[in-house]
Design a protein around this nucleic acid. Sequence first.
DNA 1: AATGAATGAGCTTTCATTCAT
DNA 2: TATGAATGAAAGCTCATTCAT
Lengths: 209, 209, 209, 209
Amino acid sequence: MPVIASKSTRRTATKEERRQQLIDATVKCIARKGIGSTTLGDVAQEAGLSQGIVNLHFNSKENLLNETLQFIAEDYKAQFEATLNKAGTEAAEKLLALMEMDLKPSICDRQKLAVWFAFWGEVKFVPTYQKVCDAYDSVYDSVINNLCETIIKEGNYRHVKAATATHALQSMTDGLWLSYLVSPKAFDRDEAMDAVYSYLRAVFPDHYE
Amino acid sequence: MPVIASKSTRRTATKEERRQQLIDATVKCIARKGIGSTTLGDVAQEAGLSQGIVNLHFNSKENLLNETLQFIAEDYKAQFEATLNKAGTEAAEKLLALMEMDLKPSICDRQKLAVWFAFWGEVKFVPTYQKVCDAYDSVYDSVINNLCETIIKEGNYRHVKAATATHALQSMTDGLWLSYLVSPKAFDRDEAMDAVYSYLRAVFPDHYE
Amino acid sequence: MPVIASKSTRRTATKEERRQQLIDATVKCIARKGIGSTTLGDVAQEAGLSQGIVNLHFNSKENLLNETLQFIAEDYKAQFEATLNKAGTEAAEKLLALMEMDLKPSICDRQKLAVWFAFWGEVKFVPTYQKVCDAYDSVYDSVINNLCETIIKEGNYRHVKAATATHALQSMTDGLWLSYLVSPKAFDRDEAMDAVYSYLRAVFPDHYE
Amino acid sequence: MPVIASKSTRRTATKEERRQQLIDATVKCIARKGIGSTTLGDVAQEAGLSQGIVNLHFNSKENLLNETLQFIAEDYKAQFEATLNKAGTEAAEKLLALMEMDLKPSICDRQKLAVWFAFWGEVKFVPTYQKVCDAYDSVYDSVINNLCETIIKEGNYRHVKAATATHALQSMTDGLWLSYLVSPKAFDRDEAMDAVYSYLRAVFPDHYE
DNA sequence: AATGAATGAGCTTTCATTCAT
DNA sequence: TATGAATGAAAGCTCATTCAT
């Protein structure tokens, strides 16, 4: 029966929507108060729903946080892939686009960074956090590593190892995020990008001038 | 006759010793469980003392954490300065020594890094944390910036700005720490150092070969 | 089939009922142990509910106590007004009825007095207590003052000021309560009433014989 | 040996002095914060002495409070007796003097009253408080009762019983104190005295005109 | 599926009391 | 006698979780 079917579909759709609504609320709460100070009550209130709602949909706070981390990781991944696709066909272009992405306001935003660092602050004590972070990171690493390899081949940069460049570039953005978090007034997006450029230019001189 | 007591006991401890003992215990607890999961009871137990002891000496948990952050920051600073003094007289030597220090086991230790990231995870939500981190960071920045300026003059590296190199180097070590925290198995101290070298060599070629 | 539950249980109680139940429990606890020795646990136990219940409904102990004082003040006011309405139409009757009310067992009960004195014992240190007591007292004062004025006019008692008689009568009942509290064995309700009568008769001789 | 003897005497004297010093400090603390909020630490600090000092001299907080009540009761008694002695030889004079005393600033002082009400607030829950208050009160009662009897005889006031007048007068001052405590702004010392006068004049017209 | 009152374990904090000096 | 660091029980309060509706 069509009516029931559509209702039933709406119900399941609603369930997923509710979960997403709660995850969104969680991200906002963490961005505003940190993980430790975010209560399930806060999340429910932020979502405009009732006290018990989180346990209904996520069974536990732990689980909600895991899924929240999963979500922001997935969100980052989506931007990563979109950037990769939008960028020109050249490896050098793609690599630059990815580096720039990390410093664009849509990602390098103090609210968002605070959420990331909130999770990283617990990464050693919550195995699932580590698993999730590790898994995603290794994906980016391999992508960037491939790009570097291509560039190295193209430019015949004999002295540079792809892995080394990958580590350098990857860690640089993470570190720049921390500096933004800690010293927002001193942080300058262009200067940050200069730091990345300076590496690319110095190491892959023929590709970035 | 040898003193038997391994820890300072009630009889022998001065107020300052007790405070340090509690800060040490706090660092251990945070390294083991994180900030959020560390209770004053944990700290007291770790120190082998009684429940009320922390509030007796620090008045509040908040204050204990502030002083703990202060302590690890001061501890890092001491190593930073020692490294600076021990290193050769050349700016290039000093800079390299500082970079190496950050990746030496005594600093780049997962326990210690976990404590740093635990605080950074709350840095946006606890103004005092930000103040402390910011203050120390700006000191290191200016030292490294000076070293870079000297090197740039010496090498006549016209294309490099000291500030840019400083940002690049500083953020790189922070980012490498994060990668160690998140992916300890994948982390390799030498590879990490290579990433730093790769920057130094590429940007200051005449100084680092 | 008769309802078994004597107290409202989880199922039946509305928020307002629960609050009242807790205030009632608080009054009982204070009557039994005093304010300082009454813990939120005591109140919860007296109400047959769980530890956290009080903070759920009142947010803080301070607030619970404020509302409890408010409640006993309101309770007294209700009796005051009922007495005023029930009494005959003459001012002298009304005044006498009010004085008698203060010494009737329903008000001049050692449990209840203990609660009043418990609050008065803190009245100087808790601004809200003072505000509440002051507000209610001024209402009674003005009512009694009006009655005295009427009586004075009626009896043409030139030497008596209404305010003076009001103060005398009001303070006399308060003081008699204290004597009951301190020396319950020596206290005699009729003798206490005699003290009040003796004033009324002496000051308003034509009205009270 | 004189030196030791004098020292020894000084020691015992000191002991008593210390106790008194601590009781004085306790009175001040109670006047400022109430009984419940007065800690032994507060008392020690007020006395300019060390933490453990109270338990050294009084063994327990309970004991300190008992002795403090004893002290203020004794203090009141001293003033009571002094007033009795200073007043003229006539019973009416003495009675009036005692009533006036209760409303003089040296006794009817909000700090002091707060202390009395603090103890009265606990009088039902602490048997020793009741015992002390009761004992002293009965002394005053019998003195005032005797004065009233004498006056009644002198004036041949057939309708007045001494006990009744005693209750009326005694309770009136207690009640006036409460009104000062609760409504300090509305309280007026002269009006309060008028209330007492109005009773004396009305009941013993030939003695008080 | 959703609510929100109720629970109770666990936290920080306070403080009377103890005790080595 | 006096100190004041240390203790540990007990308090108020928070909050993840449960559950009747």
